[in-house]
Design a protein around this nucleic acid. Structure first.
Lengths: 213, 213
DNA sequence: TATATGAACGTCCGGTCGTTCATATAGTTC
DNA sequence: GAACTATATGAACGACCGGACGTTCATATA
C-alpha cells in the first residue's frame, strides 16, 4: 500500500478542520463571516491564530469552506429529515417544520448562518458572495422541485406557480428567525408554521393530508 | 430677544447633523452600523474624522440617531403615502406597494437599513439593539392596526388574526429585499407583490377593491 | 536511522479602528 | 472692541485586525 497512507497527521488535520469550521459557522451565525475575526475564532477553539494558515491560505478560503460546511449542515438537518416524509405536500410541509425545528433548537447560536451572511455579503462582490448566492439558488430550486412534485402527484392545484410558492415559503421561514430573535420567539414559530400550513391546505385538493393547525 | 437666539452656528450644526445622518444611514444599509467606520463615513462626506465628536459623544450615540433617522425616512417614504389611500384593505396593500417601491427605487444603496442592522444587532445587547427592536415593534403594530381597521370596515373576514397577517406581510416584504439583491430583482418584486395581493383578495369579501394582479 | 512533511506555535509588521486633545475659526453676546 | 461658544481640524493614542515569518514537534517514509 504505497500511496494510500494511514497518516495520523492528516487525520488529526481533518479533525481540526472540522472543529474549526463548525466553530466558524457558529460564530459567523452571530457576528457574520467578516465580523468574525481570526483572533476571536482561535480563542474560542483554544488554538493559536497562526494555526489557521496551515489549513487555509487566507481568511477568504476559510470563509468559502465555512459556507460549504453550513450548506452541508443545512442539508443534514433540514433536507434529509424532509426526505423521510412521503413525497408531495406532506414533504413540503415537513421541510418547513424541519427548518423551524432547526431554529427552535438553537443549533446555531445566531439562529441562521445564511441569514447573517446574506445581509453581510449582498453588497460585496467576490467569491464568497457567489458561493452564498449559489447556496441560496440551490435551496430555492429544491423547494421549487418539491412543489412541482406535489403538483405532479395531484396534491397541489395545477395552477400553482412553483417559483411563487417557493418564494412565499422561504420568506415565512426566514422571518421566523428575525422575529424569534428580536421579538417573541414562541409567536414567531407559531406564525411561520401556521402561515405555510394554511397556505398549503388552501392549495391542496385533499387538505386532510396535512394537520388542521 | 434674550434666549431665543438666531444662531447661525446652531443652524449650520443642524445641517451638518442631517447630512451626516443621511449618509450614515445610506452607508449602514450597505455595511451595517458597525461595519461602517467613522473614517470612511467622514471620507464619503468630505469632513474630518474628528468632526463627529462635535456632534456626538461617541459612535454609539451616532448609531442611535441613525436608527431614528432611518425610522423617520421609513415613515415619510412608506407610511405617509399609504395613509393617502382609503382606509381598509386598499391602504394595507398601498403600504406594501410603497415598501416595494422604496426598494425598487434604490433610495438606499444597500436596499434596506433595517434589514442590515437587524441581522447585525440581534445578538448584541445594548441601547442600539433596543432601539432597533422598538422600531420593528412599532412598524408591525402599525401594520396590525391597519389590519384591524380593515376588519372593522368589513373589508377583511372577521376571523383574520391581525398579528398573523401582519407577520406574513412583513415576511414577504423583507424577502423582496433579499431576493432582489441576491437573485432576480424583477422577479423578487413580482413575487412579493403578488403574494400579498392574492392573500388579501382571498380574505376580502369584496375583492374588486384590489387590482386583479 | 535519516529525511521529509503536516500541524501548530510565538512573534512581529503595517494598517485601520474609535477616541482624545490642543488648537483654529467663525458667529453671538456683552 | 472683548469674552464666549459652537463647529471643525490635524496629530497622536492604544487596541485590534489580517497576515508573514521562522521554529518546534509528532508522524511517516525510505
Amino acid at each position: 500500500m504505497a500511496r494510500m497512507t494511514q497518516d495520523g497527521r492528516r487525520l488529526r488535520g481533518l479533525r481540526s478542520r472540522e472543529t474549526i469550521l463548525g466553530q466558524a459557522v457558529s460564530l459567523a451565525s452571530v457576528e457574520g463571516l467578516d465580523g468574525l475575526s481570526l483572533g476571536r475564532l482561535a480563542a474560542a477553539i483554544g488554538i493559536s491564530k497562526s494555526g489557521f494558515f496551515a489549513h487555509w491560505r487566507d481568511k477568504e478560503e476559510l470563509q468559502l469552506d465555512a459556507v460549504d460546511w453550513a450548506a452541508r449542515q443545512w442539508r443534514e438537518h433540514i433536507v434529509a429529515p424532509a426526505l423521510r416524509a412521503p413525497a408531495g405536500v406532506r414533504r413540503l410541509f415537513a421541510l418547513h417544520e424541519a427548518r423551524l425545528r432547526f431554529y427552535a433548537e438553537h443549533v446555531l447560536p445566531g439562529g441562521c448562518f445564511f441569514r447573517a451572511v446574506q445581509a453581510e455579503f449582498d453588497d460585496r462582490p467576490g467569491e464568497v458572495r457567489d458561493r452564498i448566492v449559489r447556496a441560496l439558488r440551490d435551496w430555492e430550486a429544491f423547494i421549487r422541485g418539491l412543489v412541482e412534485e406535489a403538483i405532479a402527484l395531484g396534491e397541489l392545484a395545477p395552477g400553482v406557480d412553483p417559483a411563487q410558492l417557493a418564494f412565499e415559503i422561504e420568506a415565512l421561514g426566514e422571518m421566523a428567525v428575525t422575529h424569534s430573535r428580536l421579538l417573541d420567539e414562541r409567536l414567531a414559530f407559531a406564525h411561520a408554521r401556521r402561515a405555510v400550513l394554511q397556505r398549503l391546505r388552501g392549495l391542496c385538493p385533499d387538505p386532510s393530508l396535512l394537520p388542521e393547525d
